[in-house]
Computed example of a mutant assay.
Amino acid sequence: MTDPTQDPRFLQDPYPTYAAMRSICPVQSVPAGSGGRASYLITGYAEARQALNDARLSKDTAAFFAGKESQRRLHPAVAHTMLASDPPQHTRLRKLVTEAFTTGAVTELRPFIARVTNKLLDQWPVDEQVDVVASLAVPLPVMVICELLGVPASDRPDVQRWSGELFASGAPTVIDAASHSLANYMTGLIADKRSRPGNALLDRLISARDGDDRLSEEELVSLGVLLLVAGHETTTNFLGNAVLALLQHPSEIQRLRQHPAEIASSLDELLRFDPPISTATFRFTTEAVTLGGTQIPAGKPVLVAIGAANRDPERWPSPDELDLDRSATAHLSFGHGIHRCVGAPLAKAEVEIALRSLLTRYPTIRLAVPTEQLTWRRTRLVRGLSKLPVLPYPA
């Protein structure tokens, strides 16, 4: 059996492939890619939800790859983050960052998000094609997370470039090099903040304690890199995918133009319809686990296809339709269980504010190219556009 997710058409539209696989079995073995290991791919909603919250599926990648040969040279701060850990270590680290992403904390950031959004839109040219990804979806969350962490404005272009290489290049050597650039930068930033303390999130993590236990230097660097990268990559794809989905559904975008107060309640359906994460990060079985009638032996990698689960007809009637009246809060786009994305409130606030400004300022915005000409990032982990060319002004 060949892996159908390796088909070039999969990047353009993965949902027919997911539907075909799910119709055969919601959990099935897929062959290894180049240099990889055979894995079990989950495409059913119930099975995905169970897997994301099952303690027998570990995220401790260091334990899984211990003693195994690898040609990869990812920096440990990128390879072994909070996302790649299990309790009690994960519980301890997550506790230290959760307060930065509470509803109250995000509310305080909303005026800054609005100012950045409008400043970016002010730069859009008149009567010219604009790339929503490059001019809004990328810089907005980069500026927000850098502001939150305390990254100097002069360093933000480098951070943006390294993060793009980490997620979008598809070239292992480029990805590995970017991981070292980010980790080295974070190491230097932490040292600088120790000598000149401030009140940004990174400063608070430097002095944070969990009881009598201060974060180690390795933990600080890893946590800083994770927040820096994950804090904007998901939001970039979320915003780009949401804009495209609305442009492809004229009645729904018109509805939000006329009733912008409904944008906030529409975000979960937009997340369900085309999530920013296509496949959840790595997990493996610590013992034999049965999911969807399939027994997965111990020690096997498990990939949870978020995009497939979010369109499972067993859970969502007419799943391939965008329906802003749908109650979609149970989507899995931010994960589920103890690893659910801690930054979800911030991501939703950024996209809500950006969509409101975009639809208010450009009521006639439309795609500049046919949908089939759009290009997508060449990775199975994230689901995001490389470019989204639009014409903001009337024809």
Rank of each mutant, 00 (worst) to 15 (best):
D3Y: 07
Q12N: 09
D13G: 09
Y18I: 04
A20H: 08
C25A: 14
V27Y: 02
S29F: 03
P31H: 03
Y40L: 02
A46W: 05
A51E: 03
A51K: 03
K68R: 15
E69Q: 14
Q71R: 15
H75Y: 05
L93E: 11
A100C: 00
G104D: 07
P111V: 11
R115P: 06
T117M: 10
K119G: 12
L121E: 08
A134G: 11
V138M: 07
L140S: 13
L140G: 08
I145S: 05
L148K: 09
L149A: 04
G150W: 02
V159D: 02
E165C: 05
G170I: 12
A171P: 00
H180A: 12
L182G: 04
G188H: 15
P197K: 07
L201P: 03
I206D: 04
G211D: 10
R214N: 04
L215A: 10
E218M: 08
E219G: 06
L220S: 08
V225Y: 13
L226A: 08
L226Q: 15
L228T: 11
A230F: 08
H232D: 00
T236M: 15
H249M: 00
S251M: 00
P260I: 03
A264K: 14
S265A: 14
L271D: 03
T279C: 10
F284C: 12
E287P: 03
V289W: 05
L291W: 07
T294M: 14
A305Y: 02
P313G: 08
W316R: 12
D323A: 06
L324Q: 02
G335L: 06
H339A: 09
C341D: 13
C341A: 14
L346I: 12
V351C: 09
E352I: 00
A354P: 03
L359K: 07
R361V: 11
P370D: 14
T371R: 15
W376E: 01
R380H: 14
K387R: 15
L388I: 11
V390I: 11
